[in-house]
Each structure stands twice: as C-alpha cells, then as structure tokens.
Design a protein around this nucleic acid. Structure first.
Lengths: 227, 227
DNA sequence: CGGGATTTTGATTCCAATCAAGTCCGGTGG
DNA sequence: CCACCGGACTTGATTGGAATCAAAATCCCG
C-alpha cells in the first residue's frame, strides 16, 4: 500500500489523524480527528481561487477538477482528481485555483494544520507532505510538457494514455468529464478534441462505443502518436 | 532569511552539511560535508535525462536550464535557474530532465542521501526538502498555466514579468538566454518571440537597448497584456 | 575591421480556432 | 412506449495566428 505510485493513499488513516486532529482546537460541528464528509453535486464549486485555504480534501468518490478562469472567460484546468486523491492542500494561506465537482462526488474535508508546527513534531507527517508535494510537482511538470510544443493529436494521445494508466483495464477508458473539460485541460477547443478523437477512430486506433467510453485498440500506436 | 519566498537559500549552510555529509561514506576526491565545486562552460550538459540521479546541485553563479528533447528534435525547457537555486534534486532514482549551462556557471554538487533515512532523522532537513518540493510544484503549475490557452503576446508578457520579479530592479531585465531558449520555454518559435518583443517596443511598452537587455517602461500595461 | 552567430523582418503556409449546422443521446412527459 | 426536448457531441466551411521558409540586419568577439 505504502509503495504504490498513484496519488491514492498518500495520506494513510494514521496520518489523517495527525493531519486533521493533533493540532486542532475544539470545533463543535466536526469530528476533527476524522474530517467531515461532504457531498457536492455535479458542477458545484468546492472551493474558489483566492479564498482562505483552511481545509484540504480527500476525494472518496467521483471526479474533481481544479481550474483557473481568465478575465475574458477562458478556463484552464490544472488537474483532475479521482477517488483516493488529495487536493486543495495549499502551502500558502489562500487557494491558487478553484475546485469543482466534475461529477456528483463525496469528499472528506480536513482542517489544515500549521505546517511548520506539524513538521517540527512528526517526521511521518512531513514525509507524507513531502510525498504529496513531490507527486504534485511531477504532475504539474508533466502537464506543462504535455501542453508545450505539441500538436492536438499528441496532446490527445498523451491524455488518453494518462487515463489508461489510471484505469483498472489498460485499454478501456471511461471519461467522467465533458469534451469541454478535456479541451480546457489540453488547451484545445471542443471541436478539435472531437475531430482528433474521430480521426483516431477512423484510423482504428480507438473505438468510441459512446462519447465517454473509449476503447484503446492500439496502445503502441497511441504511444507513438504521443511523441 | 528563512522567510523569503525565492528559491535562494532554501538549503542553508547548516543543511548542506546534513544533506551532503552525514549519510555519506568515504570519497577520496570530494569534501562530502561541503559538496564539490564545479564549473561548466556555456551550453555544456550538467546532467542528462535518464541518467542516475546521484547528485543534486546548487547554482553559485550563471544560469541553468532544465529541458527535455522530443524524438524529432523539438526541445522543451521546463525551467531556468539562477544563483542560489537548487536543481536536479530528484526523488526518483533517475533524472527526468536534462540540465545545461545557459551561461558559463559554477555549481556545488552534492551527493544525494537516501531521503527516507534522512527524513527519519532530521526534521530541519525534511522541512528544507518540503520547501523545495512545494516551490517546485508552484513553479511547474505556473508554467503550465503560462503555456495553456495563451497567445504569444500573453506568454511573452508573463515571461517578462516573471523575470522582472526576480530582478533587483523591477523594470530592467537582463536575459542570460537566447531567443531560442525563450521560445523553447514558452513553446513559440524564435521568430514569434522576436516579433512579439518588436511589437512591444513599437507600442512603447518596453525598450530594447540590446537584444538581451530589456527596459520595462509600462509594467501596468504588461500586466494587462499577461491576462 | 571581418565573419559567424544571433536576431529581426518579410512572405507564405498550415494547424487549430472560430463560425455554423447538424446529429446523437439521455431524460421527460404525454 | 414513443415523441420530443435540450444539452453534448460531431462535422463542415472559413478564418486567423503562429509556424515555416527565406533573407537581411545586427551584434559580438576575435
């Protein structure tokens, strides 16, 4: 469990107690040592860019996106999170991005501790935090590389392979998000996303039994396309 | 010192000893407790993608880029580092990117310790590491946002503002890197970088006394352009 | 000075965005 | 059960911004 490489479980039950409980005062309506369960309907905002980052979240079920909105309405999606992932753990005082429910979802909300205090007292905790930050850095770096100097086809192929790796079945990908979400993650338009997927289907690299269900027929060819 | 937000000094002299010395065996030709000073000429490779990540580096003087090369020769620059910055500290066993000297530069090279051992024994060290990872995550995330859904002008304005913030004088930026480096960082071509700068000069937003020396005449206008 | 690399400028092309219809699908109500 | 509605998705035509191709100007550095 401890050694797997996905975001899942980087905060173990033991650590959850430390993160959420040890340095917290009294709070009438929460159980600080376990966090608070909350549900969000599709497209509801979980927290918003610029708000005070007093809590972080662990996703129990569903899918979440973190994003930023530019002045003219353009939206950029920084990351998608799935069950088991931690998100919203800021090291500053305010959220740098908004978080929204891609699907109906359930989260556990934890009050944030003072990091410097915590880090002084518990090395296990600081290792969890370090693991979180390191994985976050790797993820953001990979995203930057996916966005830079890459054609629509290369971005799309990379995106499909990412989800393929997260999927229990390497060659079946179920997308929780809309074409618009994919477009905003890859910095493309919905039309280009759609055209690129259609092209892949014409080339027999994938099947599209339904819009959100994708069968990867030729993983090796996708790898080549991802450059 | 401890509270400043730049990358500088995140590894203090005291920590350098811990990072480099404490868990290291004997090594004839280095002074492990202080690291090894090395010089690299312009465009020399410091380490290469895929190589074993046994060392990390602190930049004493000059500028360094970390980058990746795609199969067809395209280059993507992930980050630039300046004096005081730490780079090449991988949490895996191999480097994920190459590092090259943008200018002649001097670095201190430290043998990497086993992180899990170190983290168990020294909370000060783990805080330094955490700070490094957190800043790295913020940097990579900002880069992804700079690359996504942004015009050439917006990217360029954002780039200039980044360097303006690092500069002692907010409205004078000295670029150590070539147009090609800028292009590979912003995912543009040298021609587009050049044209965009010329456009900014025509609009009296900047002056270009020389190619590498940029005077920012209207910071507020640059902020607007960065969107 | 001179010469090569770097940068700028110009002409053209091309990929993805935009504009504009359709089509499909899932849910709802008759 | 099926017709219909509305949102999501696909496809087509055209435009536009950055890439590419090409050449000139400039800057260094010996």
């Amino acid at each position: 469990m401890r050694s797997q490489t996905s975001f899942n479980r980087i905060v173990t039950p033991a650590t959850e107690a430390i993160l959420a409980g040890v340095f917290i005062g009294n709070d009438a309506d929460v159980q600080p040592q376990f966090g608070t369960v909350q549900n969000f309907a599709q497209d509801r905002e979980i927290f918003s860019e610029g708000a005070g980052a007093d809590y972080f979240y662990k996703l129990v079920s569903g899918t979440v996106r973190t994003c930023r909105f530019l002045a003219d309405g353009r939206r950029q999606i920084d990351a998608f999170y799935v069950a088991g992932d931690i998100f919203g753990l800021e090291f500053g005082t305010h959220y740098g991005l908004s978080a929204e429910a891609v699907t109906d979802c359930m989260v556990i909300m934890y009050r944030k501790i003072k990091l410097d205090v915590g880090a002084n007292h518990d090395t296990h905790l600081s290792r969890e935090l370090l693991a979180f930050a390191v994985r976050g850095m790797a993820r953001a770096q990979a995203h930057a590389l996916l966005l830079g100097r890459r054609s629509a086809m290369e971005k799309m192929a990379g995106f499909l392979l990412d989800w393929s790796n997260k999927s229990p079945d390497r060659d079946t990908v179920s997308l929780a998000m809309t074409r618009q979400d994919i477009a905003d993650y890859l910095s493309l338009t919905i039309e280009t996303v759609s055209r690129t997927l259609s092209q892949l289907e014409r080339d027999h690299v994938i099947d599209l039994p339904s819009a959100r269900q994708i069968r990867l027929r030729k993983l090796d060819m996708l790898e080549d396309l991802a450059a």
